[in-house]
Design a binder for these strands. Structure first.
Length: 588
RNA sequence: GCUGGCGUGACUCAAUGGUAGAGUACCUCACUUGUAAUGAGGCUGUUGGGGGUUCGAUUCCCUCCGCCAGCUCCA
């Protein structure tokens, strides 16, 4: 049941949507007034604002944007009422054919109901479900933000229209706040922080989407990988390693050459054979499974590998660490009996949840991807198997009380899946952890186990990642912590700093003590002022600075300064070591 | 891949149809410093690559590459 507070919240969300949707109409009116030859696409409200798609021969420029915004202001000032009319589809078709709006006609023709609504303000008419503001004067605070191409109806087979993005808020304060947040978010961008903190780089000569991990980034990754490995071993996984290339036949048999070729790098030839760079790890894990006859008693078998794969991603989609061409999946394949499937899925969900929470993620978006109800012919595997697999996925999500959205038709051709999205600084979602049931490979590669009846049965197979890939996960993590990693993750945990050169010997002794305890520390014994050294360490976002001045040398202590905390505490080195080790152990 | 924008020293950015400057970083010297940037001096560029227009291009045009935003696609 909805309480009054929730109801109010829902109302204001609807109000914001109405406001933005109306803003989109005003945008379209302004564009039509300034550039009458423009054809209208669609113009909805979105999470952070609104957009409208237009077809026009000459592209909009930034100067046009300013002009359009001005014209919108004029329409707002005129306070034109939004007039709704309900009419028959036939009448609407006549109106939009008179207006020469081909895209609107296409939309109308696809509408199934016979009654449609249109809205008018001033001389502008749009096909629209509504609702809208009472009049254009109610739009107070808005701003046009950007221009981009967008395919008509989201299909790259269709012509590309020009999309104008904007945002609108009930008041100037909210708008200013939103724009400022946008600026703040840019400072959290992992590409910027990755450079500032010297974590990684991408370089033209190496190639687009191919990552160079610098020492600090590599250390961060090592810590994550160690944690990942330990946790997998605790949970009954076995680690494997497999090559980066394999003979063509492996990929032919697995179906990758039929279904995944356009994502794969061209083959290389040696000794009269063709080899391909691996885009996935599964065929290798399956070959390991097939080395022996497996009994039901051996199952489940869980092979895990931090497997580096290469995929040809289209140039326009590359994005820092979040979308690359060479990446390391924290992959595993689970071979089990149909009876074991539910339990395996559940324990993967538990592992994902445990891992993400360890990295400070409190909530995440879960999507269940199932078959398209009308297109069962497009999928491999029988209905019964799909039904059972989908039920197992749903059951596991429900058991752990996870809310999720259902993506109909989002399943892969070989099976249903659960995807978890990580959200970046600008609110964009990136698919990370995934659990996929596979109805293709077991049959295709004839992977079986011997049941208690002594007969061979097809095995159930799961693909899964719990972080996704090291690249995407670390990219997300940088933004999540804004580069200020907790001590257990920080590539460099401690910087020892001297005040003048007299303390260098003592500082070196302190450093050695820290390093002997396995702590990641370095020393700044430079000639600069203490303020300079503190500032430098703070900019590097090192969790702890230990200052060794004359007083500390005298007393055998260090002055401990925690990141972003001006109040330092003086203590014995041993005491500091105890404290930070406790912090690291608890992953605080 | 598509649409639009951008590409200047290691980084952030400036400038002009007449062969480029500032800050940071780096190096040197002086200062020996008590918790977010001591001072002075110095070094750094085939202005993304190639081609064209021009007496002359970093600036204008073409082309390729890369980056950014969005679309499409994905871990």
């Amino acid at each position: 049941m909805m309480n009054s507070k929730d109801k109010h919240k829902a109302d204001s969300k609807d109000n914001l949507e109405t406001l933005r949707h109306s803003a989109a109409h005003i945008l379209a009116q302004a564009v039509k007034e300034l550039y009458p030859e423009t054809k209208l696409g669609i113009g909805p409200a979105i999470a952070d604002g609104f957009y409208y798609d237009f077809e026009r021969k000459t592209p909009f420029t930034l100067e046009d944007l300013a002009k359009i915004e001005e014209r919108m202001q004029r329409i707002v000032k005129a306070a034109l009422p939004f007039l709704k009319s309900v009419l028959s589809k036939q009448d609407a078709l006549e109106i939009f054919s008179e207006l020469e709006e081909p895209y609107k006609l296409e939309l109308l023709e696809d509408l199934e109901n016979d009654e449609v609504t249109i809205y008018r303000q001033g001389n502008f008419t749009d096909l629209c479900r509504g609702p809208h503001l009472a009049n254009t004067g109610e739009l107070k605070s808005f701003k046009l933000l950007s221009i981009a191409g967008a395919y008509w109806r989201g299909s790259e087979k269709n012509p590309m229209l020009q999309r104008i993005y904007g945002t609108a808020f009930p008041g100037e304060v909210e708008l200013a706040e939103y724009l400022q947040n946008l600026e703040e978010a840019k400072k959290r961008d992992h590409r910027r922080l990755g450079k500032e903190l010297d974590l990684f780089s991408l370089e033209e000569d190496v190639g687009p989407g191919l990552v160079l991990w610098h020492p600090r980034g590599a250390m961060l990754r090592k810590v994550i990988e160690d944690f990942w490995r330990d946790e997998h071993l605790k949970r009954g996984y076995q680690l494997v390693y497999t090559p980066h290339i394999a003979g063509e036949n492996l990929w032919k048999v697995s179906g990758h050459l039929d279904y995944f070729r356009e994502m794969m790098y061209p083959s290389m030839r040696m000794d009269e054979r063709n080899y391909l760079l691996k885009p996935m790890n599964c065929p290798f894990h399956i070959r390991i499974y097939k080395q022996k006859v497996r009994s039901y008693r051996d199952l489940p078998i869980r092979y895990a590998e931090l497997g580096t794969v290469y995929r040809y991603e289209r140039s326009g989609v590359l994005h820092g660490l979040l979308r690359v061409r060479g990446f390391t999946q924290d992959d595993a394949h689970i071979f089990c009996t149909p009876e074991q499937l539910s339990k395996e899925i559940l324990s993967i969900i538990d592992l994902i949840q445990f891992m993400l929470e360890a990295f400070g993620y409190k909530e995440f978006q879960v999507e269940l991807s199932v078959r398209h109800p009308d297109r069962s012919g497009d999928y491999l595997g029988d209905d019964e198997g799909w039904a059972r697999a989908e039920a197992a996925l749903v059951e596991s999500l429900d058991k752990r009380n996870l809310s999720y959205t259902v993506g109909e038709g989002e399943a892969t051709f070989y099976g249903p899946k659960i995807d978890i999205k990580l959200v970046d600084a600008l609110g964009r979602g990136w698919q990370g952890p995934t659990i996929q049931v596979d109805f293709n490979l077991p049959g295709r590669l004839n992977i079986t186990y011997v049941g208690d009846d002594g007969k061979k049965h097809p095995v159930m197979m799961l693909h899964r990642t719990v972080l996704g890939t090291m690249e995407r996960f670390v990219g997300g993590l940088i933004e999540h912590y804004v580069g200020a990693f907790p001590s257990w993750l920080a590539p460099l945990q401690i910087r020892v700093v001297t005040i003048n050169q007299g303390q260098e010997a003592y500082a070196k002794k302190v450093l050695q003590e820290l390093q002997e305890k396995g702590l990641r520390a370095d020393l700044d014994a430079g000639k600069e002022t203490i303020s300079y050294k503190i500032g430098k360490a703070e900019r590097e976002k090192i969790p702890y600075i230990l200052v060794a001045g004359d007083r500390e040398v005298e007393a055998g202590t260090v002055s401990v300064r925690k990141r972003k905390d001006r109040h330092q505490k003086v203590m014995k080195v041993e005491e500091f070591i105890d404290r930070i080790q406790e912090e690291i152990k608890n992953r605080e």
